[in-house]
Simulated assay, not measured.
Amino acid sequence: MEQKAEAAAAQAGGGREADSLVLHLEAQLEHLILTGELKPGERLNEIHLSARFGTSRGPLREAMRGLEARGLVTMVRNRGMYVRAISAEEALEIYDVRAAIFGLAGRILTDRVTDEMLEDLYARLAAMDALAAERDFEGYYHANLDFHERLMRFTGNGVLMAEYKSLVDKLHLCRVSSLLQAGGLAVSNREHREMVDSVASGDKYRAQEAFFRHVDRAKARFRHAAGQTPAEAAAPAAGARSPAQP
Protein backbone atom coordinates (compact mmCIF):
# COMPACT_ATOMS: atom_id res chain seq x y z
CA MET A 1 0.00 0.00 0.00
CA GLU A 2 2.81 2.38 0.92
CA GLN A 3 4.62 1.68 -2.37
CA LYS A 4 1.42 2.30 -4.32
CA ALA A 5 0.92 5.61 -2.54
CA GLU A 6 4.48 6.65 -3.33
CA ALA A 7 4.04 5.68 -6.99
CA ALA A 8 0.79 7.64 -7.22
CA ALA A 9 2.45 10.67 -5.66
CA ALA A 10 5.37 10.43 -8.09
CA GLN A 11 2.97 10.16 -11.02
CA ALA A 12 1.03 13.21 -9.82
CA GLY A 13 4.28 15.11 -9.38
CA GLY A 14 5.34 14.17 -12.90
CA GLY A 15 2.00 15.38 -14.22
CA ARG A 16 2.44 18.72 -12.51
CA GLU A 17 5.95 19.05 -13.93
CA ALA A 18 4.68 18.25 -17.43
CA ASP A 19 1.91 20.85 -17.12
CA SER A 20 4.44 23.40 -15.88
CA LEU A 21 6.72 22.67 -18.86
CA VAL A 22 3.86 23.12 -21.33
CA LEU A 23 2.87 26.44 -19.75
CA HIS A 24 6.48 27.58 -19.81
CA LEU A 25 6.84 26.68 -23.50
CA GLU A 26 3.55 28.40 -24.29
CA ALA A 27 4.79 31.57 -22.59
CA GLN A 28 8.09 31.41 -24.50
CA LEU A 29 6.34 30.96 -27.85
CA GLU A 30 3.93 33.77 -27.02
CA HIS A 31 6.88 36.05 -26.32
CA LEU A 32 8.49 35.21 -29.67
CA ILE A 33 5.23 35.96 -31.46
CA LEU A 34 4.36 39.19 -29.66
CA THR A 35 7.88 40.59 -30.01
CA GLY A 36 7.83 39.84 -33.74
CA GLU A 37 10.64 37.28 -33.75
CA LEU A 38 8.06 34.83 -35.08
CA LYS A 39 6.14 36.81 -37.68
CA PRO A 40 2.54 36.49 -38.89
CA GLY A 41 2.30 33.73 -41.47
CA GLU A 42 5.54 32.09 -40.34
CA ARG A 43 5.55 28.32 -39.86
CA LEU A 44 6.42 27.02 -36.38
CA ASN A 45 9.24 24.56 -37.07
CA GLU A 46 8.95 21.91 -34.38
CA ILE A 47 12.47 20.55 -34.92
CA HIS A 48 14.13 23.95 -34.61
CA LEU A 49 11.98 25.04 -31.68
CA SER A 50 12.43 21.81 -29.74
CA ALA A 51 16.19 22.16 -30.17
CA ARG A 52 16.06 25.81 -29.13
CA PHE A 53 14.10 25.09 -25.97
CA GLY A 54 15.85 21.78 -25.24
CA THR A 55 12.63 19.81 -25.06
CA SER A 56 10.83 17.00 -26.86
CA ARG A 57 8.23 17.74 -29.49
CA GLY A 58 5.32 16.40 -27.39
CA PRO A 59 5.17 19.25 -24.85
CA LEU A 60 5.93 21.73 -27.64
CA ARG A 61 2.87 20.55 -29.56
CA GLU A 62 0.74 20.91 -26.43
CA ALA A 63 1.99 24.47 -26.02
CA MET A 64 1.16 25.22 -29.66
CA ARG A 65 -2.36 23.89 -29.17
CA GLY A 66 -2.74 26.25 -26.23
CA LEU A 67 -1.75 29.17 -28.45
CA GLU A 68 -4.14 27.93 -31.13
CA ALA A 69 -7.01 28.00 -28.62
CA ARG A 70 -6.09 31.62 -27.85
CA GLY A 71 -6.08 32.58 -31.53
CA LEU A 72 -2.36 33.34 -31.86
CA VAL A 73 -1.50 30.41 -34.13
CA THR A 74 -3.46 28.34 -36.60
CA MET A 75 -3.21 24.79 -37.89
CA VAL A 76 -3.03 24.36 -41.67
CA ARG A 77 -3.90 20.81 -42.65
CA ASN A 78 -0.98 18.72 -43.89
CA ARG A 79 1.36 21.70 -43.46
CA GLY A 80 1.66 22.37 -39.74
CA MET A 81 1.18 25.23 -37.31
CA TYR A 82 1.60 28.86 -38.36
CA VAL A 83 1.62 32.19 -36.58
CA ARG A 84 -1.79 33.62 -37.28
CA ALA A 85 -2.01 36.53 -39.71
CA ILE A 86 -4.70 39.09 -38.92
CA SER A 87 -6.22 40.82 -41.95
CA ALA A 88 -7.02 44.54 -41.83
CA GLU A 89 -10.74 43.72 -41.95
CA GLU A 90 -10.51 41.39 -38.96
CA ALA A 91 -8.35 43.87 -37.06
CA LEU A 92 -11.02 46.55 -37.43
CA GLU A 93 -13.64 44.15 -36.08
CA ILE A 94 -11.40 43.35 -33.12
CA TYR A 95 -10.98 47.06 -32.43
CA ASP A 96 -14.78 47.41 -32.22
CA VAL A 97 -15.05 44.64 -29.62
CA ARG A 98 -12.03 45.96 -27.74
CA ALA A 99 -13.61 49.44 -27.58
CA ALA A 100 -16.76 48.02 -25.97
CA ILE A 101 -14.76 46.03 -23.40
CA PHE A 102 -12.46 48.95 -22.62
CA GLY A 103 -15.42 51.27 -22.19
CA LEU A 104 -16.86 48.86 -19.65
CA ALA A 105 -13.50 48.83 -17.87
CA GLY A 106 -13.65 52.62 -17.51
CA ARG A 107 -17.11 52.43 -16.01
CA ILE A 108 -16.12 49.69 -13.51
CA LEU A 109 -12.86 51.43 -12.58
CA THR A 110 -14.68 54.67 -11.69
CA ASP A 111 -16.55 52.83 -8.94
CA ARG A 112 -13.37 51.20 -7.58
CA VAL A 113 -10.65 53.82 -8.00
CA THR A 114 -8.67 55.02 -4.97
CA ASP A 115 -6.35 57.96 -4.44
CA GLU A 116 -3.39 55.56 -4.55
CA MET A 117 -4.52 54.20 -7.93
CA LEU A 118 -4.89 57.71 -9.35
CA GLU A 119 -1.47 58.70 -8.05
CA ASP A 120 0.03 55.65 -9.77
CA LEU A 121 -1.74 56.38 -13.07
CA TYR A 122 -0.80 60.08 -13.15
CA ALA A 123 2.84 59.19 -12.44
CA ARG A 124 2.79 56.82 -15.40
CA LEU A 125 1.29 59.51 -17.61
CA ALA A 126 4.10 61.91 -16.68
CA ALA A 127 6.71 59.28 -17.53
CA MET A 128 5.01 58.61 -20.87
CA ASP A 129 4.90 62.35 -21.65
CA ALA A 130 8.70 62.39 -21.23
CA LEU A 131 9.10 59.38 -23.53
CA ALA A 132 6.87 61.02 -26.14
CA ALA A 133 8.88 64.25 -25.98
CA GLU A 134 12.06 62.25 -26.54
CA ARG A 135 10.39 60.37 -29.41
CA ASP A 136 11.40 57.15 -27.70
CA PHE A 137 9.01 54.91 -29.56
CA GLU A 138 10.23 51.64 -28.09
CA GLY A 139 10.10 52.93 -24.53
CA TYR A 140 6.71 54.54 -25.03
CA TYR A 141 5.26 51.44 -26.64
CA HIS A 142 6.08 49.22 -23.66
CA ALA A 143 5.00 51.90 -21.18
CA ASN A 144 1.72 52.14 -23.10
CA LEU A 145 1.13 48.40 -22.79
CA ASP A 146 1.89 48.54 -19.06
CA PHE A 147 -0.47 51.50 -18.60
CA HIS A 148 -3.39 49.70 -20.23
CA GLU A 149 -2.64 46.52 -18.30
CA ARG A 150 -2.65 48.57 -15.08
CA LEU A 151 -6.04 50.07 -15.88
CA MET A 152 -7.51 46.63 -16.50
CA ARG A 153 -5.97 45.18 -13.33
CA PHE A 154 -7.41 48.04 -11.26
CA THR A 155 -10.92 46.99 -12.35
CA GLY A 156 -10.49 43.80 -10.30
CA ASN A 157 -12.46 41.87 -12.93
CA GLY A 158 -10.52 38.78 -13.99
CA VAL A 159 -12.86 37.82 -16.83
CA LEU A 160 -12.66 41.31 -18.31
CA MET A 161 -8.87 41.29 -18.06
CA ALA A 162 -8.58 37.92 -19.83
CA GLU A 163 -10.87 38.92 -22.68
CA TYR A 164 -9.10 42.23 -23.13
CA LYS A 165 -5.65 40.59 -23.19
CA SER A 166 -6.82 38.12 -25.83
CA LEU A 167 -7.88 40.97 -28.11
CA VAL A 168 -4.73 43.03 -27.49
CA ASP A 169 -2.50 40.04 -28.24
CA LYS A 170 -4.13 39.65 -31.64
CA LEU A 171 -3.71 43.37 -32.39
CA HIS A 172 -0.18 43.57 -31.04
CA LEU A 173 1.73 43.81 -34.32
CA CYS A 174 -0.97 45.95 -35.94
CA ARG A 175 -0.78 48.50 -33.14
CA VAL A 176 2.98 48.85 -33.46
CA SER A 177 2.60 49.78 -37.11
CA SER A 178 -0.33 52.16 -36.70
CA LEU A 179 1.12 54.06 -33.74
CA LEU A 180 4.49 54.54 -35.41
CA GLN A 181 3.13 55.59 -38.79
CA ALA A 182 0.58 57.94 -37.28
CA GLY A 183 3.26 59.65 -35.16
CA GLY A 184 0.73 59.65 -32.38
CA LEU A 185 2.76 59.33 -29.17
CA ALA A 186 1.77 62.70 -27.66
CA VAL A 187 -1.76 62.41 -29.08
CA SER A 188 -2.17 58.96 -27.57
CA ASN A 189 -1.04 60.15 -24.16
CA ARG A 190 -3.44 63.12 -24.22
CA GLU A 191 -6.20 60.56 -24.67
CA HIS A 192 -4.80 58.59 -21.72
CA ARG A 193 -4.99 61.72 -19.57
CA GLU A 194 -8.61 62.29 -20.64
CA MET A 195 -9.36 58.75 -19.47
CA VAL A 196 -7.74 59.12 -16.05
CA ASP A 197 -9.32 62.57 -15.55
CA SER A 198 -12.73 61.08 -16.34
CA VAL A 199 -12.22 58.31 -13.76
CA ALA A 200 -11.05 60.87 -11.18
CA SER A 201 -14.23 62.90 -11.82
CA GLY A 202 -16.37 60.05 -10.47
CA ASP A 203 -18.63 60.16 -13.54
CA LYS A 204 -18.71 56.55 -14.76
CA TYR A 205 -20.60 57.45 -17.95
CA ARG A 206 -17.97 60.03 -18.85
CA ALA A 207 -15.29 57.43 -18.11
CA GLN A 208 -16.99 54.80 -20.24
CA GLU A 209 -17.15 57.22 -23.17
CA ALA A 210 -13.50 58.34 -22.74
CA PHE A 211 -12.22 54.75 -22.64
CA PHE A 212 -14.37 53.76 -25.63
CA ARG A 213 -13.30 56.83 -27.61
CA HIS A 214 -9.59 56.08 -27.00
CA VAL A 215 -9.84 52.69 -28.70
CA ASP A 216 -12.07 54.07 -31.44
CA ARG A 217 -9.42 56.68 -32.22
CA ALA A 218 -6.76 53.96 -32.22
CA LYS A 219 -8.92 52.12 -34.75
CA ALA A 220 -8.98 55.23 -36.94
CA ARG A 221 -5.17 55.53 -36.71
CA PHE A 222 -4.83 51.87 -37.68
CA ARG A 223 -7.20 52.30 -40.61
CA HIS A 224 -5.19 55.32 -41.79
CA ALA A 225 -1.93 53.35 -41.53
CA ALA A 226 -3.50 50.48 -43.45
CA GLY A 227 -4.51 52.90 -46.20
CA GLN A 228 -8.23 52.25 -45.89
CA THR A 229 -11.07 54.75 -46.12
CA PRO A 230 -14.10 54.18 -43.84
CA ALA A 231 -16.12 53.01 -46.86
CA GLU A 232 -13.44 50.50 -47.85
CA ALA A 233 -13.21 49.23 -44.29
CA ALA A 234 -16.98 48.66 -44.16
CA ALA A 235 -17.07 46.71 -47.43
CA PRO A 236 -16.00 43.04 -47.50
CA ALA A 237 -12.95 42.47 -49.68
CA ALA A 238 -13.77 40.57 -52.85
CA GLY A 239 -11.98 37.25 -52.95
CA ALA A 240 -10.20 37.95 -49.69
CA ARG A 241 -8.24 35.07 -48.24
CA SER A 242 -9.12 33.75 -44.83
CA PRO A 243 -7.02 35.50 -42.13
CA ALA A 244 -6.27 32.03 -40.77
CA GLN A 245 -4.18 31.20 -43.86
CA PRO A 246 -0.43 31.91 -43.76
Rank of each mutant, 00 (worst) to 15 (best):
M1A: 14
E2A: 13
E2R: 05
K4N: 14
A9V: 09
A10D: 02
Q11C: 10
A12I: 07
G14I: 00
G14F: 01
G15R: 03
G15L: 03
G15A: 05
E17Y: 00
E17L: 11
E17M: 07
A18I: 01
D19W: 08
D19V: 13
L21N: 07
V22D: 04
V22S: 01
H24V: 11
L25H: 06
A27D: 08
Q28P: 03
G36L: 09
L38K: 13
G41S: 12
G41K: 08
R43P: 08
R43H: 12
R43L: 15
N45G: 05
L49C: 05
L49P: 01
S50R: 13
S50I: 06
F53M: 13
G54A: 10
S56M: 10
P59T: 06
P59Y: 03
P59I: 04
L60H: 07
L60Q: 06
A63W: 03
R65A: 12
L67E: 09
E68W: 01
G71A: 06
L72N: 09
L72E: 01
V73D: 11
V73Y: 08
V73T: 08
M75Q: 13
M75G: 02
Y82A: 05
R84S: 07
A85C: 12
A85M: 11
A85D: 09
I86F: 08
S87M: 04
A91R: 00
L92P: 02
E93Q: 15
R98M: 09
F102W: 11
G106M: 02
G106F: 08
R107I: 03
L109M: 04
L109I: 02
E116R: 15
M117C: 11
M117N: 14
M117E: 01
E119Y: 08
L121E: 02
L121Y: 06
L121R: 07
R124L: 05
A126T: 12
L131H: 01
A132T: 00
A132K: 00
E134S: 09
Y140W: 11
N144G: 05
L145E: 10
F147A: 00
H148K: 09
L151T: 06
G156L: 04
G156A: 10
G158P: 02
L160Y: 02
M161W: 12
L167V: 10
D169I: 04
D169F: 09
L171P: 02
L173V: 03
C174M: 06
S177T: 13
S177N: 12
L180H: 08
Q181Y: 08
G184S: 14
G184M: 04
G184I: 08
A186S: 14
A186I: 06
A186Q: 15
V187W: 13
S188I: 02
S188H: 12
E191V: 12
R193F: 04
E194H: 10
E194T: 13
M195C: 12
V196F: 06
K204F: 10
K204C: 04
Y205E: 15
A207Q: 02
A207K: 00
Q208T: 02
Q208S: 11
F212E: 14
R213N: 14
H214D: 14
D216L: 14
D216H: 13
R223K: 10
H224Y: 12
A226R: 03
T229W: 09
P230C: 06
A231H: 09
E232H: 01
P236E: 00
G239S: 04
A240T: 01
S242Q: 05
